[in-house]
C-alpha cells in the first residue's frame, strides 16, 4: 500500500522571493524559491518538486527550455546574479552558485556536459563543448550530438509538462 504524500505545508520557505514566472513555465508547488532578489523563470522551463532557488545574494535568471531537477540548489553568489541560459538541464542534487558549479549531478549547461559529482572551481570558465567526467577530467565533445540532445530536451520538457502540475500561484507575492 503506497503511503500518502504528506502535504509540505510545514516546509514552506520563510522568506518568499519576488518572482517573475513566464506563463508557459511549469513550476511544482513544492519548489523552494527564497531570497530577496528577483527570480526570473523563462518560458517552457520545468522546475521539479523540491528544487531550491535562493536569491539572497543576487538575482537568478533562468532562460527558456530549462529543466531544474529535484533537490538541486541554485544560488547567486553576489549581486551580479546567476544567469542560467536557454536549454540547460540541471540534474538532481546539483549545486550551482554564481559562476561556481560544484558537486554537480549531470549539470548540462548549453553545449557542455558536467557528469555527476564533477566540480568546477571558483572563477573558472568552462569553454563550450567541454565534457567534465570522472574525477573532474575534461575533454572536448566532438561527437556532434548537441542537435540530438536538444531534441531530447524538447521532448523531455513536453512530457514533463503533462506530468508535473504547475502551481505558479503559490509563488506570487
Amino acid at each position: 500500500m503506497p503511503p500518502r504524500t504528506r502535504p509540505s505545508a510545514s516546509t514552506e520557505p520563510v522568506s518568499k522571493s519576488p518572482v517573475d514566472l513566464h506563463p508557459a513555465c511549469v513550476i511544482d508547488g513544492t519548489a523552494q524559491l527564497t531570497g530577496t532578489y528577483l527570480i526570473r523563470v523563462g518560458a517552457n522551463t520545468i522546475i521539479h518538486p523540491k528544487a531550491r532557488l535562493n536569491s539572497s545574494n543576487g538575482p537568478i535568471t533562468i532562460g527558456e527550455s530549462c529543466i531544474i531537477s529535484e533537490r538541486c540548489m541554485l544560488q547567486a553568489a553576489d549581486t551580479n546574479g546567476l544567469v542560467v541560459g536557454d536549454a540547460v538541464s540541471i540534474e538532481c542534487n546539483a549545486v550551482v552558485e554564481g559562476r561556481e558549479v560544484k558537486e554537480g549531478t549531470d549539470v548540462e549547461v548549453g553545449n557542455c556536459k558536467l557528469c555527476p559529482m564533477t566540480e568546477v572551481a571558483e572563477q573558472e570558465v568552462v569553454p563550450d563543448y567541454t565534457v567534465m567526467y570522472g574525477y573532474s577530467e575534461r575533454r572536448i565533445d566532438a561527437s556532434g550530438s548537441e542537435g540530438a540532445r536538444r531534441k531530447f530536451l524538447d521532448k523531455h520538457i513536453e512530457a514533463l509538462k503533462a506530468l508535473i502540475v504547475s502551481n505558479p500561484a503559490k509563488f506570487k507575492a
Binding site: M1, P2, P3, R4, T5, R6, S8, P49, E70
Partner: peptide, 22 residues
C-alpha cells in the same frame, strides 16, 4: 508504518504515490 511493515518517514518526499509499489 503501513500494514505490510513499510516504514516511511513523514519527512520523505513521495510524489505520485499511486504509481509506487512497496
Amino acid at each position: 508504518e503501513t500494514d505490510t511493515g513499510n516504514k516511511v518517514s513523514r519527512k520523505s518526499i513521495i510524489v505520485g504515490s499511486q504509481n509506487i509499489i512497496l
